[in-house]
Design a protein around this nucleic acid. Sequence first.
RNA 1: GGAGAGAUGGCCGAGUGGUCGAAGGCGCACGCCUGGAAAGUGUGUAUCUGCCAAAAGUGGAUCAUGGGUUCGAAUCCCAUUCUCUCCGCCA
Length: 441
Amino acid sequence: MKFSQGIFYFHTFVKNSDMLSIHYIRENTTEVVERLKLKNFNATQIIDTILSIDIKRRETKKNLEDILAKSNSLAKEIGILFQSGKANEANILKSETTELKQQSKELTEVLDLLEKEQNQLLITLPNLPHSSVPIGKTPEDNILIYSEGSIPQLSDDCLAHWDLATKYNIIDFELGNKITGSGFPVYKGKGAKLQRALINFFLDNAINNGFTEIQPPLMVNEASGYGTGQLPDKEGQMYHVTLDNLYLIPTAEVPITNLYRDVMLKADQLPIKNVAYSQCFRREAGSYGKDVRGLNRLHQFDKVEIVQLQTPERSYETLEEMKDYVASLLRQLELPFRILKLCGGDMSFTSALTYDLEVYSTAQQKWLEVSSVSNFETFQSNRMKLRYKDNEGKNKAVHTLNGSALALPRIVAALLENNQTPEGIKIPKALQAYTGFEIIN
RNA sequence: GGAGAGAUGGCCGAGUGGUCGAAGGCGCACGCCUGGAAAGUGUGUAUCUGCCAAAAGUGGAUCAUGGGUUCGAAUCCCAUUCUCUCCGCCA
């Protein structure tokens, strides 16, 4: 495969991948349609079309392969005849191959077309939601499954984090505007140190919980973007370095999961638990207004991401563990938080089940999403051809899971706002060993 | 960036037009041998996919990727990607 010329080669990897496999759709048609309804996706017509193309496709394939089989055996015979000096007989057989060649050429063209059509339709189908996913269309329909911590009582003159950042001279949004643009803040002094402290705090926690630290590239190629599902759907969300056809990662999920692209694992290697700190780059095209104020939505931000590869049997158990692990970080940071189970309509295209963890940002008086923990089941591994050999020697697709643990900016926002006092901003105990100071003043 | 060499199965490595999905070795699995083990020895050991309810069986595809020449390509031609060596540049 080659990626240097972008769009032109894109079909190459579209061609061989099913996100939902055609086999599954073929054998569980009604179930697929029903479950996609949970995501408010009406698949009836698309699937009908896919299945009728599939019939034609397999028929064509069969015909083509029959012809190829004939050609192969003729070629073999011709070879034997030539070697035993029977050139005349060989030449007679040769003339028989002309028509076969023509036929196979035509059928190949038809088959290519059918495969392309089929895959273009398959690619439009989102991942099947897990059966426990709540019905719903908007964030209002998400289910609150847990909450913890009490919301601090602040005085009426409390400040939002962007004002606190200026007051204590720890984050400079204006400077970022000057040297780059909006959404690229500059962290200074204790603000910078706080960043570094949080990163180390999150990494150390993950390592202590059995995750292996990875330091990935911050740019990825097209195949990687495709593997985790950012391409082709969300192309406009990534910064694209056109000269080299590379993309700045929107999350470490992309390089970390793609480490296992085209890999065949053994059952005893699972689960694989990786953690990575990276800076993340998002164009956030189309988001304007209040929500982007301060640290709420940035073009560049810091995040520690956990990724797990697990067997299908245990992946939901693992999802719960990951959710609880992220909650433990928020608990240590003494932030009031809640956990939501996302409804079908609010889930991402690729996810089968997602929990969002939100912290309360007291001065802004709103909940901020700081982590999203998802099980993608086989959606990504199908795209990436990531499989494992189970104990019976059968190849199966691996389940992939990931979650933020955690994304820094909104954590910082909540820490600043919730912990403001007349004396300054108090650093939670668990973090003090990392910051080396107890208060920002 | 310039010049040259190369890319073969889990790994090493042979293979320059025909019966090659690919010798040989290592590794791995199972068996024999052994009191047990090592050594020795025998057998097996890729992936995707079509037909089939499934297994068996059988067909197709795959020797970096894509295309071409040919009745026939791991082998010849073209393009691309990557790796290595030397030179240049450089944190």
